[in-house]
Every structure is written in C-alpha cells, then in structure tokens.
Computed example of a mutant assay.
Amino acid sequence: MERKEYSAGAVKHSFWFMEFRNEVKLLSEGKSFEAVKELCRTENIFAASTPDRAAQIFNTVSSRIKGMGDSFYPVFLKGDVSSQKIFNLAAVMANDTLFFDFVYDVIREKMIIGSNEYKPGDLNIFFKDKQLQSEKVAGWTDATIAKLGRNYKTFLFEAGMTDKGRDVRKIFKPILEPDMERWLADNDMEPIVKALSGVR
C-alpha cells in the first residue's frame, strides 16, 4: 500500500458514497473517466451546488477509485450497501494516508483493547503526535486540525463504523465480506484490513 504525503485536503472533502458508487457503476459499464467528467460538467450527475464543487467531487472520487484500480469494481458492485460503504471507506483510507493512520492508530487500537468508543481527546492526542512527527502537520492551524477531526468523525459515521454521539462515539466493528477482504489482501491493502478489523 502506497504511503502518500500527509495532506489536509480532507477539510474540503466529504464521504461521497453515492457519488463513488455511481461513478464505479458508470466505469464498470465501460465509460471512461473523461466521459464521467463530461457528464459531471453537462448533466451535473453528482447534484453539486456549483460547477467548481462538481469538479472537486469528480476529482476526489476519481482519485479514490484510481487508487484502488479497476479490479475492485465487480467485488464492490455485488456487495450490499453496508459493504459498499466500508469499501468506500477503504478507498478514502488508501487515498489519504493521514486518515488511514487515524483509523489504524486510534480506531484499530480501541477495538484491539476491547474498547468500543473513542473521545475527542483521542483525536487531539493523535494530531498532537502527528505534529511532533511531521513539520507539515505542525504548520497547520488549529482551525484546520479541528475541521479535519470533524470530517474524520463524519467519514466513520457515514461508513457505519460509529454512531453520532456528541462527544463519545461508539465504534461498530464492521463485518468484512470475504470477497472484499480477499481483494484488499490480494491488492497490497492488508493494513486496511487490519485497521477495519481491529487486529494486530
């Protein structure tokens, strides 16, 4: 699994599950990324509020899909909605190394020790550690870090991995479909399997 440079891009991103699913469906039917981009521009297929937002959604979702490669399309499309949401979460993790680290270092560890919840303090400790490890993260403003934390919580909630508690959030360990788990393992994404399954 490729580790990318840490990025605060997620402050502008959403989980975009429906958009991800629709784009995978179009690509699996033989459309090119360029053709999907044109549909975004001419037909606003992602129901974006502005053309700029449509372009941002397309670019981010396409980046997530390209990071997985096209061999996941049939595995994704035959899964139920809850499995597809976890697959989308895996694509977000593969595309955003800092978010992956959060799930791996915080959520996975919580599941390993048998804790079924995480608190705002867990996010604060995670970001403080990253600021010590990375000059880039150390240069981000408190507002950027706070927004990243909010979006990370939203990603996990929309994937079905947590509830929407105001402070403390319950963690729901996902059941990975065997085909999805096998695909992730076969495609150098074993760390994502461990992060989602809560195993060492």
Rank of each mutant, 00 (worst) to 15 (best):
H13W: 15
I113F: 11
K12G: 12
Q133G: 00
I113K: 11
Y6G: 02
Y6K: 05
N124G: 08
S63E: 13
D96R: 02
F127D: 04
A54S: 14
K4C: 04
S82Q: 15
K37R: 14
I125N: 07
M93Y: 01
N95M: 06
V75Y: 06
R53Q: 14
D101M: 08
E34C: 03
A47C: 11
K136I: 10
F17H: 15
S49E: 15
D80V: 06
F99L: 12
F127S: 01
R3Q: 14
K66A: 09
N22A: 07
G9V: 00
T50E: 06
K78D: 13
F58L: 05
K130S: 03
S134P: 12
F100N: 03
F58I: 00
F72W: 13
R41Q: 13
N59D: 15
G67A: 06
A8Y: 15
K110N: 09
K119R: 10
F76N: 00
K136W: 06
E34Y: 09
D101C: 05
G9C: 00
K25Y: 13
D122Q: 03
D129F: 08
Y73L: 04
F46W: 11
I65T: 08
F87V: 10
R64Q: 11
A90L: 06
L39I: 01
P51M: 01
L27H: 02
M93P: 14
Q84W: 04
T42C: 07
F15V: 01
L132S: 13
D96F: 01
D52W: 04
F126E: 03
N44L: 02
V92W: 10
V137K: 00
Q56D: 15
D105K: 12
K31T: 06
T42Y: 13
A8R: 12
Y73W: 09
N95L: 05
A48C: 05
N116Y: 12
A91T: 11
E38S: 09
I125Y: 11
N22C: 02
Q56P: 00
L98Y: 08
F102K: 01
N59E: 15
G79V: 03
A54C: 05
A55N: 09
S83V: 05
I86R: 08
M68T: 00
H13E: 14
G139T: 00
A54D: 06
D129W: 07
D122W: 05
F20S: 00
F100C: 03
K136V: 09
D122I: 01
N44K: 05
F46N: 08
R41S: 13
A35E: 15
E135V: 08
D105N: 14
S63K: 14
K119I: 09
F33V: 00
L27S: 01
A54M: 05
A10M: 14
V106C: 03
D70W: 06
R3N: 12
F76D: 02
R108K: 15
V36K: 01
S115L: 10
E5C: 07
G67K: 02
